[in-house]
């Protein structure tokens, strides 16, 4: 590979310095260069939302950015949320409401919802559906995801 650029990026609070080709998609960088495979890739044309991560705290499609663009920035992926024995309240609600089937799109939903719930701690069902509209799910028909977001909002309100 020629034409490499050195970038330093903070992912989930950890600093990484890597040499990357400019054309390397951020999604591939996260998955294959950093090994953070919780972020999935579903279309690479910016529609399905599966690859959603936070970029400087805001949800973005990581297939529609180049890794070089993350130089000096902060990326947050699903791995930053809870772990298996200590789920984040949103993850807990997803489990409780059966919002996961194949689990492939799930990380993208979670990463879209984290900033959404921060901004809208008490969303209506309609607001939730709007917030989910940028992520495709082929398994659930979305109903249990909507339920999970409501549940998460309730639980998070109690906790805070």
């Amino acid at each position: 590979m020629s034409n490499l650029k050195t970038i330093t990026v903070t992912v989930n609070g950890k600093h990484y310095t890597r040499d990357v080709e400019p054309r390397l998609l951020l999604s591939d960088f996260i998955r294959h260069h950093l090994g953070l495979t919780g972020t999935h890739v579903g279309c690479e044309h910016g529609v399905c939302g599966t690859c959603t991560v936070l970029f400087d705290g805001e949800s973005v499609r990581s297939c529609l950015m180049f890794a070089v663009q993350s130089d000096g920035h902060e990326v947050t992926t699903v791995e930053s949320l809870g772990d298996i024995d200590n789920l984040h309240p949103l993850q807990e609600a997803f489990m409780e409401a059966h919002a996961v089937q194949c689990g492939f799109c799930t990380s993208g939903f979670l990463m879209s919802l984290i900033p959404f719930l921060e901004e809208n701690p008490d969303p209506t069902e309609e607001e939730i559906r709007d917030a989910l509209a940028g992520n495709l799910c082929r398994c659930t028909g979305y109903q249990h995801i909507v339920d999970a977001v409501k549940l998460a909002a309730e639980n998070m309100a109690v906790q805070s």
Binding site: T39, T77, D83, I84, L87, G103, T106
Partner: peptide
Amino acid sequence: DPRMLTGQALFVDD
């Protein structure tokens, strides 16, 4: 679910 929700479930591309 816990594995899927935390990005720890193995998919082929992983």
